[in-house]
Design a protein around this nucleic acid. Structure first.
Lengths: 340, 340
DNA sequence: CTGAAAGCGCTTACAG
DNA sequence: CTGAAAGCGCTTACAG
């Protein structure tokens, strides 16, 4: 970078106006007369002027960027198709919004909360998108206490009416899947979920329990398993389930990859699907559709969630919207693993 | 955001030193004596001081951010598992680097080059990672002409010795796969690739042609197909191939999803795999491993590519490294679709 | 080892 | 509709 940079002052001088005027032209201030505007514009063009976003940020106290906070702790980060898809939605939503996207990167020990503080206290962002929420989430609490504009993908733990968030009805999704299996005559339905600290996990378990209750099936805590979003988890719990004396006749899984692992184990042990054990899952990934035994899966439409979260944070910044709640639809795709 | 912000001047006053000194403490300038440093640090802590990154950027002319340019044109952006994976590598590489990641978002008409100009001319980034390269890529040319620090995932079109880039040896990968199929006795090998403007496509086609030549198979341009990275492409070309009179006995595909589409068509038409037609592919996605008919696939290790690209751009910024070339290994996973 | 001063390139009341 | 002036919160030669 050698050429010396053209500033607003250079343009002002050439155009024979004040820097203030040039600044107003840049920010499309309508008070500037057409002739002046055009004159300034012409000189900007001629001189190859480009506004310095940093200087602008400092003076206006607006960074023009939105911080995207990805969970740092979870190993599943990109194993779980949810994150790339939601990110795609965010990127899509950010297009034409005029905002830049600042991605969180953690330095080892740093918790998400540290990243957020750096972003906010360093004035790097005007708004924040939180890609997941935990039980009693300190990030949500922090942002909320600051009244900083943000939106959450997922649901908050309490504070329902105060936090902008976009989510599926995970309670209903799990309820519906469980009821569906019960309708299919299943009497002993196990569940494998993700991190129990996550709100999404909590809600799904609640929906599952409720459905069991209404189907007159007793909830058995020994049939509720917690694990990561990898195949290995599916193998492990799949083996345990398949080898139980009085084994479950259905299992609901939080992610297709895990479900796939379980299906594979079942098949290797000659447990027939769905007759002996039915399998239903979440995320509707490529795998669930194309596996040898296609898996019934709930499409939560993560792209949509990302897109809406972007809209929401923009509203939070520009219109001080707070406590807005958006529920996007899910779709249950019924396939061979439950339909036979 | 209500509380009034604590500045370097406030801290200086309280601590009884000059703002310069406080600034030097922040930037860990070693010339500051231990007692002064500790005194300042104590006051910073007490007052809840946090440096303003924007002001810092303006004064130091360093943004502390790296721009990540994702292709805007390609529909495949997130269909192709390459991008999320490479992005994961970039995020991982950025951790502990101290740099922020600024993601490109395009506004409709904007070409990638416009995004880059905004980033650079607006002083928003100190370096750039280009996630893909086209033939005669204007972005590469622009960055190169500016001598702006950047790294490219993939290979440049010419300018080999001047552009920092990290890539697989795509020529060799395609060559090896083609030769492998030829060794298996295949005599008529088709190829389905992605956008022909992409360098990666060009290199793979070259490797393929070279292998054909060495195997004494004539290259037939009618057996070279171009398409997007979706299942549909696989169906379409798969149908065409399967219904040819004198049909190919092998096909190499640029992505597993496309390959999967082709495999599905073949199977539905009772074309046996790999006996009648062998299928080999790229990306080694979950699908290739877990599909009903597992597909032989080249793992290009996109995460690694992303990680290295990050290291490279940091070197470009901090040590003015230019023209560095990093080749990361690929692995061919041989599966049922070619092994029978 | 520390300070005073100038400057980074903008924006924004205020005044006219 | 336009300008002069102050200021955004830092850094960095320069001087001592």
């Amino acid at each position: 970078m050698n050429k010396k940079v053209v500033t607003i002052n250079d343009v002002a001088k050439k155009a024979g106006v004040s820097p203030s005027t040039v600044s107003r032209v840049i920010s499309k201030n309508p008070k500037i007369s057409a002739p002046t505007r055009e004159k300034v514009l012409r000189h900007m063009e001629e001189m190859g002027y480009h506004p310095n976003a940093i200087a602008r940020s400092l003076a206006s106290k607006k960074s023009g960027a939105i911080g995207v906070i990805m969970p740092t702790t979870s190993q599943d980060l990109f194993l779980n198709p949810f994150f790339p898809e939601a990110l795609r939605g965010i990127v899509r939503g950010a297009s034409n919004s005029g905002y830049d996207l600042l991605l969180s990167t953690n330095s080892d020990k740093d918790e998400e909360i540290e990243v957020i503080k750096h972003f906010i206290l360093g004035s790097k962002v005007d708004g924040i998108i939180l890609m997941s929420s935990k039980v009693n989430d300190e990030c949500v609490n922090y942002l909320s206490s600051l009244d900083f504009p943000f939106s959450l993908i997922g649901s908050p733990d309490g504070l329902e009416g105060q936090i902008n968030h976009v989510d599926n009805d995970n309670f209903m999704a799990a309820y519906e899947v469980t009821t569906y299996l019960s309708m299919k005559g299943k009497k002993k339905i196990a569940m494998i979920v993700g991190d129990e600290k996550l709100i999404v996990t909590k809600k799904r378990v609640e929906g599952y329990k409720r459905a069991l209750l209404e189907s007159n099936i007793n909830f058995d805590e020994n049939l509720l398993y917690t694990g990561s979003f990898d195949e290995q988890t599916g193998y492990e719990y799949g083996s345990i389930i398949a080898e139980m004396e009085d084994k479950p006749d259905a299992v609901i899984v939080a992610d297709d990859l895990v479900a796939y692992g379980a299906v594979k184990v079942f098949e290797s042990l000659d447990v027939s699907i769905p007759e002996d054990i039915a399998v239903a899952s979440f995320n509707n990934s490529i795998l669930s559709r194309y596996a040898a035994t296609p898996i019934t899966s709930v499409d939560i439409n993560a792209v949509k969630l990302g897109e809406e979260s972007m809209k929401l944070v923009v509203q939070a910044m520009e219109k001080e919207v707070r406590g807005q709640k958006i529920i996007t639809p899910y779709t249950i795709h019924k396939r061979k693993s439950t339909e036979g």
